[in-house]
């Protein structure tokens, strides 16, 4: 099944949204999931990389770091709010 980078980005966004607050996803988790879903013929690592860049550059997702780098929905930093 051939898919576009935009479709991959949308599917990744939905994944991130679904687990926000419950589980943190890394770039490779998203990439693996997309290849599982669309098959290696329809969707390669390069397209996944482009889709992630698209999500970040368009402010739909942000990189976060908690002992490792993750991709999450933009949200307020816990540590920024006093106490």
């Amino acid at each position: 099944m051939a898919v576009t980078t935009e479709q991959i980005a949308d599917a990744m966004y939905e994944m991130v949204k679904e687990v926000q607050g419950k589980k943190k996803l890394k770039a490779m988790d998203l990439t693996h999931a997309m290849i599982d879903r669309y098959g290696a013929e329809g969707c390669d690592k390069k397209m996944c990389k482009a889709a992630i860049r698209d999500l970040i550059d368009n402010d739909r997702c942000v990189y976060t770091y908690f002992g490792g780098s993750y991709i999450e929905l933009p949200h307020e930093e816990g540590a920024a709010s006093g106490g």
Partner: peptide
């Protein structure tokens, strides 16, 4: 305190977030 979100647009590295308690 460690901050995990701040950065410059588009990059996931290069900035270490710090807040005092």
């Amino acid at each position: 305190k460690h901050g995990g979100i701040v950065g410059v647009h588009g990059y996931g590295g290069g900035v270490i977030g710090r807040y005092n308690d």
